[in-house]
């Protein structure tokens, strides 16, 4: 089982995820239309680029925008969750060892204690995000089962990973579960709402170009995100 998951399955999921992301990313930008979107993307590449970078950069900084500052609760839960969701898969020691064995590459690794903190933070934040969906009427009204499913898919690798990490019950079972959930997540990325992991940059870039080119950028006004 373990061999299968870390062998064929790993290669398939990784391939589907990367190719899928790349394809959709390209499709997104090819599908932009100056006339339908009413943004002269190609006429002002410099202004568009500046706007796009600003639009992405500002939103990546915790409390970097009015939106984050006016809603600190979700900002904390959001960054708590996403820090873990981005850092742990890439920079956990175990993951890097695995990657080196499989791909011959590895990244910088996190200190084990720090990794624990990020993981718990992600789980706790996910819990608050679920709670928020249940409690706040303005979020509840829009929340569908699909939204919970996405949250579950994204947090499952963390939970199974923790169970394995603390060896609750049988280690190898949880490890396999962990790998399975992780691969499920990778597969889901290009095809579900999880596509936001890369389309976030695309969509933000688009609105950034809109403001950078049409809505004030070329008048010398930087959007106060």
């Amino acid at each position: 089982m373990h061999d299968l998951l870390t062998g064929v399955f790993f290669w398939i999921t990784l391939g589907v995820c990367l190719i899928g992301m790349l394809a959709r990313f390209i499709m997104y930008f090819r599908g932009l239309s100056w006339q339908l979107d009413r943004v002269a993307y190609t006429s002002y590449p410099a202004a568009g680029f500046k706007g796009a970078v600003r639009s992405i950069y500002k939103w990546l900084i915790p409390f970097g925008t009015y939106g984050w500052r006016t809603q600190p609760f979700i900002a904390i839960a959001f960054f708590g969750f996403h820090l873990g969701a981005v850092l742990i898969p890439l920079f956990l020691l175990g993951h890097n060892l695995f990657l080196r064995e499989k791909l011959g590459i590895s990244f910088f690794t996190l200190n084990a204690d720090v990794a624990d903190i990020f993981t718990w933070m992600a789980v706790a934040s996910a819990f608050f995000l679920v709670l928020r969906r249940l409690v706040l009427p303005e979020v509840r009204i829009m929340t569908t089962r699909y939204d919970y499913f996405i949250l579950l898919v994204s947090i499952a690798p963390f939970i199974t990973g923790l169970l394995a990490r603390y060896q609750v019950g049988e280690y190898s079972f949880w490890l396999n579960m962990h790998i399975f959930c992780g691969e499920l997540l990778l597969i889901a990325i290009p095809f579900t709402k999880l596509s936001h992991v890369f389309l976030f940059f695309a969509s933000r870039a688009q609105l950034g170009m809109d403001f950078g080119i049409k809505r004030g950028g070329m008048k010398g006004t930087k959007m106060a995100w």
């Binding site: 979107d37 979700i74 979020v139 939204d147």
Partner: peptide, 17 residues
Amino acid sequence: VKSRMKTWLEICAHCGM
């Protein structure tokens, strides 16, 4: 309804922000 709007409608996280 091309990339921009399709994506908007698809990736909306229903976060209520």
